[in-house]
């Protein structure tokens, strides 16, 4: 039996994927702007954040409408509540990309402190986590989602490593403090993006298995 509610759910899924693609691009561009000292790209990334925000609102409205009109249960209910939570995380990731872009603009006005190696690596991990979390969502793949949760440790480790390295710069030469602090902020932003990707992955496990695994060791 064909049911137009299924079409609504399909459209909702497509909206989330569109939003996810936008956020992946935001993260990639913000880091590219940092590495290539591209102020225009950084400005453009900041300007694009409002598109992600608009998407966030649109998805929320859709979810609320579906909840009110169809009073969904079981998998449908889990899908819609998951969608609402996922978009909040995606929106926050875009905000963090905006923050990275702001720091990138500031850093572009100063001489380079060091070649960027670990930050792009971190960004690569974070982007992959976001992508895989969304893939897990699309394919309802709890196994992939659990792997994404595990990957967060890698980003946390890189954050610590970057902090230690920047600290050594600051101790050696106080003139580097401003830049080093800005870079450590960026490391922190990327680490937060990893956390949000983990949240998305945890919600995917809930969507598939009906089990809430966040704030547990599962």
């Amino acid at each position: 039996m064909q049911w137009h509610f299924d079409d609504e759910l399909k459209r909702l899924k497509e909206m989330i994927l569109r939003m996810g693609a936008m956020v992946e691009e935001q993260i990639a561009n913000s880091v590219k702007a940092l590495v290539e000292r591209d102020v225009d790209l950084a400005r453009q990334t900041i300007a694009n954040d409002h598109r992600v925000n608009a998407m966030d609102v649109e998805i929320d409205e859709t979810c609320i409408r579906l909840l009110a009109l169809y009073q969904p249960a079981a998998r449908d209910l889990r899908f819609i509540t998951t969608a609402m939570k996922i978009t909040t995380d995606l929106e926050r990731m875009s905000d963090l990309s905006e923050d990275i872009s702001e720091r990138a603009i500031e850093l572009a006005g100063e001489p380079p402190l060091k070649p960027y190696i670990d930050l792009p690596r971190m960004a690569g991990h974070a982007q992959r986590m976001v992508k895989e979390a969304l893939d897990a969502f699309v394919n309802q793949d709890a196994q992939l989602a659990r792997r994404v949760c595990g990957d967060d440790q890698m980003i946390d480790d890189l954050t610590d490593q970057i902090f230690r390295e920047l600290l050594s710069y600051m101790m050696a030469d106080p003139a580097t403090v401003t830049r080093a602090i800005r870079l450590s902020f960026i490391a922190k932003y990327l680490e937060r993006i990893g956390d949000h990707a983990t949240n998305v992955a945890e919600m995917v496990v809930y969507l598939v298995e009906g089990k809430l695994i966040r704030h547990t060791q599962a």
Binding site: W3, A73, R78, G210
Partner: peptide, 19 residues
């Protein structure tokens, strides 16, 4: 039952996809 039924037939019924 209404958030995470074990049986597919239950799920189909409560989500209105029965039959």
């Amino acid at each position: 039952i209404f958030t995470n039924p074990r049986e597919k037939r239950t799920e189909d019924y409560i989500t209105g996809r029965f039959g």
